Amino acid sequence: MRIGELAALLGVSTRTVRYYHHQGVLPEPPRLANGYREYGMRDAIALARVRRLVALGLSLGEARDVIADDRSRELPEILAEIDADLARQEEEIRIRRRRLAEVLQRAEAGTLGLESTASPDLLAFLKTVDLPASKAAAWDRELLLLMDTVAAEPERERAFTMFRTLAADPEVAARGNEFYRRLDELADAEPGDPRIGPLAETLAEYTLRHMLPAGLPGESGFGAEEVEPLLEGLAPAQAEVVRQAVRRISAA
């Protein structure tokens, strides 16, 4: 298969595959006589492994060592290890669904409070962050609490580490407050307001630079469809900023 077919098979962009090649994480097959590179099953397995290892919090250098080790092993052994990893993921999903069922049950009973379901680490962190008195900031806080409530434990730990690092950087914190201010200004704006595009572009650039694993584009974990249910608390123009930003990130 060609690089585009490999990327589509694993749900990433060709830019992501080339980025892994450039970083030395994913071996790049030699060019054939026709000038194209031909990818096979081992390449698809290696790409899947890299994505999973990065999702688990490994650096690209650590993932590179694992993939290099894979090259010296037999394919059935690698597949057996992947199968075991999928079984662990399946258990994580079951845990998340149980937690989500509990949250939904409490929501239906009218007893749901996100502060009572989010992790203590995140709650303590939010108390130390000087968020502005902003509707956009309040929405962002509720979104963080909701995502933390339904997330698996490893995801909670990674997200908390990232937010703590961001909050420790005064420049990053100032940029965040500026985003909230600009979003608040769009509370009464029309969905076609000319300020939407520039703000979405700035927000996407900020996210790609500061909030994705190893600065890798296209690895946000959210697409336009996934983020849509989370936009109900925003005004139409504000929601359009988030939609456009997510589309830019997905296409990066």
Rank of each mutant, 00 (worst) to 15 (best):
G4P: 08
E5P: 03
E5G: 08
E5Y: 10
L6S: 08
A7H: 07
A8L: 04
A8W: 09
L9I: 02
L9R: 04
L9D: 04
L9K: 05
L10V: 06
V12E: 07
V12K: 08
T16L: 12
V17M: 05
G24T: 13
G24E: 07
G24K: 09
P27A: 11
P27W: 10
R31L: 11
L32M: 12
N34D: 11
G35A: 10
G35L: 11
Y39A: 11
I45H: 02
I45N: 01
R52D: 09
L56Y: 01
L58N: 14
L58K: 07
S59I: 10
R64E: 14
A68M: 07
D69Y: 04
D70G: 08
D70P: 00
S72R: 14
S72V: 11
R73F: 02
L75V: 09
I78L: 14
A80N: 03
E81K: 13
A84I: 13
D85S: 14
Q89P: 13
E90H: 14
R94D: 15
R94Y: 09
I95H: 07
L100V: 02
A101G: 04
V103I: 09
L104Q: 04
A107E: 12
E108A: 15
E108K: 06
A109I: 00
A109Q: 13
T111I: 09
L112I: 08
L114C: 06
T117K: 03
A118H: 06
L122M: 08
L122H: 02
L123N: 04
L123K: 04
L123E: 11
L126R: 07
K127V: 05
A133V: 03
S134D: 05
A136K: 14
A138L: 12
D140Q: 05
R141Y: 01
L143C: 07
L145A: 08
L146R: 04
M147D: 13
D148W: 06
T149C: 15
V150E: 05
A152E: 15
E153D: 15
P154D: 15
P154Q: 13
R156Y: 03
E157S: 07
R158G: 00
A159R: 15
F160A: 09
F163M: 12
R164L: 10
T165N: 14
L166N: 10
A167S: 12
D169H: 11
D169Y: 12
E171Q: 06
E171H: 11
E171Y: 01
E171R: 14
V172H: 13
R175A: 10
G176A: 05
G176H: 00
E178R: 09
F179T: 00
Y180F: 09
R181W: 07
R182P: 02
L183N: 03
L183F: 13
D184L: 08
D188A: 11
D188I: 01
D188C: 07
E190I: 04
G192K: 12
D193N: 01
P194C: 05
R195F: 08
I196V: 02
T202S: 14
A204Q: 06
A204F: 15
L208W: 03
R209S: 10
H210V: 10
M211L: 10
A214R: 05
G218V: 01
F222E: 10
G223P: 03
A224F: 05
E226L: 00
V227I: 12
V227G: 06
E228F: 09
P229N: 01
P229K: 02
L230V: 11
L230Q: 04
L231H: 06
E232I: 12
A235W: 14
Q238F: 08
V242I: 00
R243V: 03
Q244E: 00
I249A: 04
S250D: 13
A252S: 12
